[in-house]
Every structure is written in structure tokens, then in C-alpha cells.
């Protein structure tokens, strides 16, 4: 099979209740707080535009924000993508912790890995923010903050 589509999945257990995790994950305007390398995030209705650290604007269509299932889905609509679907599920583990699963499906395949690879770091940042009881007020730190 020579498909040019790929699927990448990252997951992480977070030591906070699912509702608390969802409060952050389910708010589309707060993405820059926990996704490293996003310097701006503007939401207008069902459209979200993020700006990456390299200055690339990436328009997105918000597809699903379901607080009952705690599922967030969006589609990157930048021309580089033939297809994209991002899915974040926050799963209650019934012990005061939750499992966050971040799936990235994309055509071209390379972009699935470029975006999906970054989601692992995003989940780590999410865990740090939530388990550290930190109040997120600005963009997640990129490499510049820690390298000197």
C-alpha cells in the first residue's frame, strides 16, 4: 500500500481528574498555554488560527467540542494538507487520574508526523501544568526559554 496518509497517536496519563484536564483541553483558545511552539491562538466562531514559532499561520476548523465525551476534534485547513483530523480524548480512569490520547491523522503522511510528533511534547507540557497546579497565563515555553 503506497498511501500518503498516516496516523500518529500519543497518550499520557495525567494525575488529575478528567474534568479538570478537560477544562484546559476543551477550551480552544487556551491551546498556546500547553502546546509548545505556538505563539498565538485566535478563535473566531468555529475557526481557530494558530501561529507557530517559525511564524507560520495555520488555520483550523473546530469540529467537535464535546464536554460529555470529553472529545475535541479539529481540522487544519492549510493548503499543505490534503486531509487532517486532530482528535484529543480525555478519558476518566476513575481513580482521580485521566488518560489523554492525542491522535493526528493527515495526508500527506509526513505532516502527520510533524504535527503528531509535537503532540507528545504538548501532552508532557499539559501534565506539567496540571500536576504542578500552575496557573497558565501565557504561551507554553519554547526552547528559547530554557537554553541559556
Amino acid at each position: 500500500m503506497r498511501s500518503n496518509r498516516a496516523s500518529v497517536r500519543r497518550q499520557l496519563r495525567i494525575g488529575r481528574p478528567a474534568g479538570e484536564v478537560w477544562d484546559l483541553v476543551g477550551d480552544p483558545a487556551r491551546l498556546a498555554e500547553w502546546f509548545p511552539g505556538i505563539v498565538a491562538c485566535d478563535v473566531d466562531g468555529t475557526t481557530r488560527t494558530i501561529t507557530t514559532g517559525s511564524g507560520v499561520p495555520m488555520p483550523e476548523q473546530l469540529l467537535t467540542i464535546d464536554p460529555l465525551q470529553r472529545r475535541f476534534q479539529y481540522r487544519i485547513t492549510a493548503p499543505l494538507f490534503t486531509e487532517h483530523l486532530g482528535t484529543i480524548d480525555v478519558i476518566d480512569l476513575d481513580d482521580g487520574t485521566s488518560l489523554v490520547v492525542y491522535g493526528t491523522d493527515a495526508d500527506p503522511a509526513t505532516l502527520a508526523l510533524v504535527i503528531g510528533g509535537a503532540t507528545g511534547q504538548a501532552l508532557e507540557r499539559l501534565r506539567t501544568l496540571l500536576e504542578g497546579d500552575q496557573i497558565a497565563t501565557g504561551p507554553a515555553p519554547g526552547p528559547a526559554a530554557g537554553r541559556r
Binding site: F35, P36, G37, I38, T52, G53, S54, V56, M58, T110, V114, A118, Q121, G142, P143, A144, R147
Partner: peptide, 13 residues
């Protein structure tokens, strides 16, 4: 190298 988020130190530097 493929780093649109500029999240890797080498690229950011």
C-alpha cells in the same frame, strides 16, 4: 529539521 513550531533548540538558536 522539519520543525514548524520551532520547538527544537538547534532551530531556535
Amino acid at each position: 529539521y522539519l520543525d514548524p513550531f520551532l520547538r527544537f533548540e538547534e532551530n531556535a538558536i
